[in-house]
Design a protein around this nucleic acid. Structure first.
Lengths: 344, 344
DNA sequence: CGCGGTCATGATAGCGCTACCTTAGTGCAA
DNA sequence: TTGCACTAAGGTAGCGCTATCATGACCGCG
């Protein structure tokens, strides 16, 4: 008996449910969002009507009317990079059982794309926003500051986040890995890096500092490329590094893909690992612990970061006690065969 | 001078732009969605007003009014599985420069979760829906049939899709890999599989048929687990398989992670690959071509599948000529060192 | 010079939901 | 009994945008 609305979508609306249950639309709305606001009797009638009609709320109408979408927007620079996939797993885990949805945006490592996505996502008035890194453009930062929702920067550590932050220090990670190589007795320690996004740059800076402290730094030891990282690329970069520095006796790889490629290439050239070449990766994917030889790496809290970031958003939404705005989850150097030069 | 709307969000609306540009709201709407409908002069005024106010359209209001969201929903069972990450890369690539957004849903390999997500996404009236696989629940299939938007099932091949389909045959892939192992001279060929989702099951079926044809099938050769796949797991499953069948002389691995784990474990046990143990993976990640020894695998069109699926949706939306509803992108057996038993 | 046809623009009325305010009913102290 | 606080439910008016129809200007043509 509705107004034959020429435009209506054919799908049952909250009004249809209300009519069937013999209540007002607003009561249905309340029953769906917070059942405690509605008497048990009506609640049951409404639930029955919802089931009978197969009613599904229109999220767009809901978001428009309440100017609040039940969505947490998550911006990552890449989805093929397992680091961010693991991070997103943590996000999903923390959100399980929660009616909030996840909206993933892929910036492809482009600040401009990031700016566009932040503008677009904030236009949807999400319940929370999680962005990767701390190197947003000025325009993006301005938008984040006036986001009107909790904002978490992740996968880095810094003292002055836009709002909240959870991650670890890539600089310290790079430094720790490199110091370990120095202590293991290596002297011509190369750096192999791909893509060289801001996080890679900070790992490189940590590497550099550690080598300078030991009086071992030499620019010729650093081989980088803007190309995205991959296992084959690790082998290629090792060849380049050895061409530049034949005496190379160890490499700190920007990530585990490269480290694995380095290992394969070393095996191909019959270079003995760890005796003639030490290899250290970054992230500590689970394959590092079972490679042959087992590969040293820096374990990073990817999953935990996603999990914690969501928890921080949720706590803020629930108006709970303010916890620390900056959380450093740290990292852990996993020393394995590939850098145990003096092992039996 | 607006009605002091106590509820308005504070953000500029299309009405604000219209007032500043001295036109009606509907004209702004037209200028934004299809500039050719508006005279050059007004268009310029409107663009100026948009820029001055920093106007950003409200996607919820737009979706509500037009009952059509500018979104393509993509459902995958996992994001950490590189196969689906590559697939999504293809989706992004095909959508570059297009105003359509991507909405990713993660089913975690659960038909129930898939059902929930399909219902939710369709409630947003997306412009298209891409779902992984062909093993949806009855309820999900019903919803897909009445989706009201183009639907593409991906990563499998079948004759009767809900709407459109693009992928390849996992059964044929498994068969081809196994036949190759037989032809290479292996006789006790094991199957190692993790997770055992429907696609894995079909690869296993292909393996079984190939071995039966050769008179070599033996249930004791098959080792599977519901556990998610990983590199370490590959090594563990190899150990299990060798315990069950000491004479094992080759393994077809359900995917490349397992194959890599098998290789590492073989190296650890000093089992010579490919002479004493042949290894064949599935998917052909780029590391397979550089491992030492190089690993044989079945190359699958992951990126291409994502790309093509989006193209199919777009073509349908543009009302273009109907192309094939089922597209088989095939696969390619990449024979490498790890199965070249009789190589010099 | 008036007629139908095209084109650019505008006015109006929703899309489906919820914020906000009002109304009716209940219990209880004065 | 009156008055007041409190709860459950409903009425109304938007949220910001677009579908649809209406309007008026302009055009060519018999």
């Amino acid at each position: 008996m509705k107004k034959t609305g020429r435009r209506n979508s054919g799908r049952p609306t909250i009004t249809d449910v209300a009519r069937l249950a013999g209540v007002a639309a607003i009561t249905v709305s309340r029953a769906l969002r917070d059942p405690s606001l509605v008497s048990v009797e009506l609640r049951r009638q409404i639930e029955a009507a919802v089931a009978e009609l197969g009613y599904e709320p229109n999220v767009n109408a809901r978001a428009l009317a309440s100017s609040r979408a039940d969505v947490i927007a998550v911006l990552v620079p890449s989805l093929t990079n397992i680091v961010f996939a693991d991070f997103i797993s943590g996000v999903y885990k923390a959100l399980r059982g929660n009616p909030l949805q996840i909206q993933i945006g892929n910036t492809h490592y482009s600040p401009r794309e990031e700016e566009r996505l932040v503008a677009m996502f904030l236009g949807q008035r999400p319940s929370g926003l999680i962005v990767s890194g701390i190197d947003q453009s000025k325009a993006t930062l301005k938008r984040l500051q006036t986001a009107g929702c909790p904002v978490v920067q992740v996968m880095e550590y810094a003292d002055e986040p836009v709002d909240m932050l959870v991650g670890f220090s890539h600089f310290e990670g790079g430094k720790a890995a490199t110091r370990h190589l120095v202590e293991a007795g290596y002297r011509r320690i190369g750096f192999i890096g791909a893509r060289m996004d801001p996080r890679s740059q900070r790992r490189l800076a940590g590497y550099r500092l550690a080598l300078e402290e030991a009086g071992l730094f030499d620019p010729a030891l650093v081989v980088t490329t803007p190309t995205p990282s991959s296992v084959p690329l690790g082998g290629e970069l090792l060849c380049q590094a050895m061409a530049k520095t034949p005496a190379l006796d160890a490499v700190f790889c920007n990530n585990d893909d490269l480290a694995l490629g380095v290992l394969f290439e070393a095996q191909r050239q019959a270079i003995r690992v760890p005796q003639a070449l030490g290899i250290c990766g970054f992230n500590d994917l689970d394959l590092m612990g079972v490679a042959h030889p087992r590969l040293t790496s820096v374990r990073t809290p990817r999953f935990e970061t996603g999990h914690r970031a969501v928890q921080m958003v949720l706590r803020r939404l629930q108006g709970g006690a303010e916890e620390a705005r900056c959380v450093d989850l740290g990292f852990q150097l996993q020393v394995r065969d590939s850098t145990m030069r003096d092992a039996p």
